[in-house]
């Protein structure tokens, strides 16, 4: 089986499980909206405007780690992972397939969260610029998250270990994207090289994840 077909088959398997059960997307979108609502209640209408990008990030981060954990947990049921490892597929391709499934799921939940954010914070998206920055940010976040989701079963903390490992690693993404969203709304502030940081993060961690995934993957 060629690489691209193997990746498509694995990713569509994960997505098919999700479309049939619809368990996780509902849970994750709900959690994300709750995070936005809690912060909106706490911060009040003064927090409106581009600074809400940070609030959206909090919701993306928490719903994201649940996504990563769940797509990996599917493989741990009934020893599915052992079968997957026996299949004649490169481990790097398994990583890319999981990443693809995670990205599709996160885009769906991210849309719900973003709509909630726009409503509650009267947040002007400056549409395409915002979407581009957040898309690059989410790709980097998913690249790191998918990699470490492979090792959460070895820790006593289980899924709890994932945010501990992933959040500190993603701080440069959050920093760069929030600064860039701020700059889009405040013309006097200039941010140069923001896209460079985001793209570099994505490339570095996609490559690192693809190479390192096999060391972390274990039934």
């Amino acid at each position: 089986m060629s690489g691209a077909r193997a990746i498509a088959a694995l990713a569509s398997k994960d997505l098919r499980i999700e479309t049939r059960s619809r368990e996780m997307v509902t849970l994750v979108a709900m959690l994300g909206v709750l995070v936005v609502v809690v912060l909106a209640l706490g911060l009040g209408p003064e927090a409106a405007g581009p600074r809400a990008a940070a609030i959206l990030w909090v919701a993306y981060l928490f719903s994201g780690v649940i996504c990563f954990e769940k797509t990996m947990q599917v493989e741990r049921q009934d020893d599915a992972l052992a079968a997957l490892l026996l299949a004649p597929v490169d481990r790097g391709q398994i990583y890319l397939a999981k990443l693809l499934a995670n990205l599709v799921l996160m885009t769906g939940t991210g849309l719900v969260i973003t709509v909630a954010g726009v409503l509650f914070f009267r947040f002007d998206l400056a549409a395409w610029g915002f979407a581009g920055v957040m898309a690059l940010g989410l790709i980097g976040f998913a690249a790191v998250g998918t990699l470490f989701s492979a090792c959460s079963s070895s820790s006593r903390l289980g899924g709890g270990v994932l945010p501990l490992l992933v959040f500190p690693l993603c701080l440069p993404l959050i920093l760069a994207s929030t600064q860039m969203v701020l700059a889009m709304h405040e013309p006097e502030r200039t941010v140069s090289g923001g896209y460079g940081v985001l793209v570099a993060f994505d490339i570095v961690f996609l490559a690192a994840g693809w190479l390192a995934f096999e060391f972390l993957l274990e039934p």
């Binding site: 790191v144 470490f148 090792c151 070895s154 690693l169 993404l173 940081v197 570099a200 274990e218």
Partner: peptide
């Protein structure tokens, strides 16, 4: 929190490398 010594060493080694790769990115984002 990782009990098996071999597993702990492997997870930590991967994290050590990934964290190191993160350092220049942190620098440029700040």
């Amino acid at each position: 929190t990782i009990e098996s010594a071999e597993r702990r060493a492997m997870v930590c080694a991967v994290y050590g490398i990934i964290a190191f790769l993160d350092v220049p990115l942190v620098y440029f984002s700040t």
